[in-house]
Design a protein around this nucleic acid. Structure first.
Length: 554
RNA sequence: GGUCCUAUGGUCAAGCGGCUAAGACGCAACCCUCUCAAGGUUGAAUCGCGGGUUCGAUUCCCGCUAGGAUCACCA
């Protein structure tokens, strides 16, 4: 046995499998030629980031539009930063936005034949490959301490040379296998590094699906592939996992471009075919006139939980994200009149290359469109679902009478040009609470904002006249005609023009009368269509309110 | 700082050698109107700079500038 094999054997005596065995265990997928296999590979370090949702959306679209497979792999090799339970949260949040998986990590279990799908459970797989690398002198143990590495970096910075563990600075790469064996036997701690054969001064052309050819210097750094805790680093895990899981297109943020040479080199060194890469633009935020990456710490919209908590319809969030990804999506929604990204044909070529600034106004626009197109029934059920977790005060109203709630939501809905006053479920409560008597009483307990030009007596007389004459069975148009007549009796002109021409003859116009009614019924100067409100309230409740106002004024 | 990526209105962007430089969001005005939310009409607002190439550059090339990303036993 040669010394490299001995070294490999010493480090991984328990590993008996070979790379060939793994190839057999994870055979090529049985898919048609054009089908793409993509994945979303988050690390469980906290909440789902908006940028990650964007990446996941694109990955899923690429797979599904090509009849392929979309899977999720949990990259949990950083045990220090791991937030327990966030892996489960990740997939449930993904599901809220309609990102479901064909296979992969499901929280309590995995599904699919290429697992395990969490990297912490794949340690033995990585070790098989590393043992192979070690035996072939493609990797070596490194005994440098973090302190030594730090001083190396400092001196490199002082000497103004490219920092890093490479070439002559990579002292452990010159250790003979025999020397390494001695050190290991002495019990010295170590990591495993990849032995790079690259030349920093030589450039290679790498193809990116959305950026075209990228000209980057080769990697010459002997990167760590196995940490002292026995888990691989991202670079190595990515190569091994995407090889055995047969990923065909890797979609990830553009921050990965610079490490592309590392990944390509490792694929080549092992003799594997690298997947195609699509590096997605980052979602940015404007701060002090400068763009920056959307930050989880500073920006509430950076975590998707923000949209969930505020009650933005997930479909609207996805539509917004898709409009960033493919700007022709918006055009498509106008034609198709739906906002379902699953029905849209996504195109990687149409991705823009620089990071979009997150635009809450635009999301609001999408959200209003999406909600306006829902049936009252659907809105009622979705908003109720949301309220259960996020808005007890709204839930209270809903639970009093679901039918009534639905009637309220149905005002000026389910027609050609529906109302667009809700962008998110959290907007609902303040808009509708006046429909509930106890809330109404609270709202009108303060001063009623009646127009000062009109005396209390006139208000009262109009309200009385209205109660006496109003016909609740009329349709909208006829009702307003009748309101004009009722108002005229109390001295209101039937229209503004008539009023302006005869200022001394009238106390106001029908609009003023409507305002009095509106304030009396809702406590506010602004509300949806009065006729619709009266329909929902019903005669009894309406009169109760009008009488209440009359009493209050007297 | 090295390296890489990017560069059209405030934002998202179409454009791919010749156009009065699309469209959407936002903004403004007007119209409609019982208020609001809408809807309709109109408007303001863009090719970062400098060199080339070309009869002609927003478009192709180079440089500059600006912004971004990245340089860990984090992903």
């Amino acid at each position: 046995m040669d010394a490299f094999k001995q070294l490999a054997e010493l480090i991984f005596p328990e590993i008996q499998e070979t790379v060939g065995d793994l190839e057999k265990r994870y055979p090529p997928r049985n898919l048609k030629e054009t089908a793409q296999v993509t994945r979303f590979a988050p690390s469980p370090t906290g909440f789902l980031h908006t940028g990650s949702l964007f990446t996941a959306m694109v990955a899923k679209k690429v797979a599904k539009d090509s009849g392929g497979i979309f899977f999720l792999r949990l990259e949990d090799t950083d045990t220090k930063r791991e937030v327990s339970g966030s892996g489960e949260q990740l997939i449930s949040q993904l599901a809220e936005f309609g990102i479901t998986l064909d296979e992969g990590f499901l929280g309590d279990r995995d599904t699919g034949g290429y697992g395990p799908y969490r990297q912490s459970k794949r340690a033995s797989i990585y070790k098989v490959v590393i043992k192979h690398l070690l035996a072939n002198n493609l990797a070596y143990p490194c005994f440098c301490s973090t302190e030594e590495l730090d001083t190396l970096r400092k001196t490199q910075e002082e000497q103004k040379v490219v920092p890093g563990y490479y070439g002559k600075y990579a002292t452990c790469r010159y250790l003979s296998p025999e020397e390494s064996i001695v050190k290991i036997k002495e019990g010295q701690p170590y990591v495993i590094r990849f032995r790079s054969k690259g030349d920093h001064f030589r450039k290679t052309l790498i193809r990116d699906l959305i950026r075209g050819e990228i000209n980057i210097a080769e990697n010459d750094i002997d990167i760590v592939i196995l940490k002292s805790d026995g888990l691989p680093t991202y670079h190595f895990a990515h190569v091994v996992d995407d090889h055995f899981m047969h990923t065909t297109v890797v979609t990830r943020g553009e921050e990965w471009i610079s490490s592309l040479p590392i990944h390509v080199e490792i694929f080549n060194a092992i003799g594997w075919k690298a997947p195609e890469y699509a590096h997605l633009p980052l979602i940015m935020k404007l701060e002090n006139g400068n763009k920056r990456k959307l930050s989880k710490r500073k920006d509430e919209e950076a975590a998707v939980s923000f949209f969930i908590e505020d009650g933005y319809p997930p479909r609207a969030v996805m539509a917004y994200l898709m409009s960033i990804a493919n700007s022709n999506f918006e055009e498509w929604t106008e034609k198709s009149n739906i906002y379902d990204i699953d029905k849209f044909t996504f195109n990687l070529d149409k991705m823009s290359l620089d990071g979009a600034l997150f635009d809450l106004d635009k999301l609001t626009f999408f959200a209003k469109e999406v909600i306006a197109r829902m049936s009252a029934h659907r809105l009622a059920s979705l908003s109720k679902k949301w309220a259960i977790n996020h808005a007890p005060e709204l839930l209270d109203l809903i639970n009093r009478n679901t039918d009534y709630y639905e009637q309220i939501l149905n005002i000026e809905r389910e027609k050609e040009n529906p109302r667009k006053d809700f962008a998110k479920y959290s907007d609902i409560y303040s808009h509708i609470r006046f429909f509930y008597h106890d809330h109404y009483l609270n709202l009108v307990s303060v001063d009623l904002p009646f127009d000062e030009r009109i005396t209390k007596d006139k208000v009262i007389s109009f309200l009385r006249g209205f109660m006496k004459a109003n016909d609740y069975t009329l349709d909208n148009d006829d009702w307003f005609l009748s309101l004009k007549e009722i108002a005229l009796i109390s001295g209101f002109a039937p229209n503004n023009k008539e009023y302006k021409n005869n200022l001394d003859k009238y106390i106001g116009h029908v609009g003023d009368a409507a305002e009095i009614l509106r304030i009396s019924l809702t406590g506010s100067k602004n509300s949806p269509n009065l006729w619709a409100i009266l329909q929902v309230l019903g005669q009894e409740e309406a009169e109760k309110r009008l009488n209440y106002v009359i009493e209050k004024l007297r």
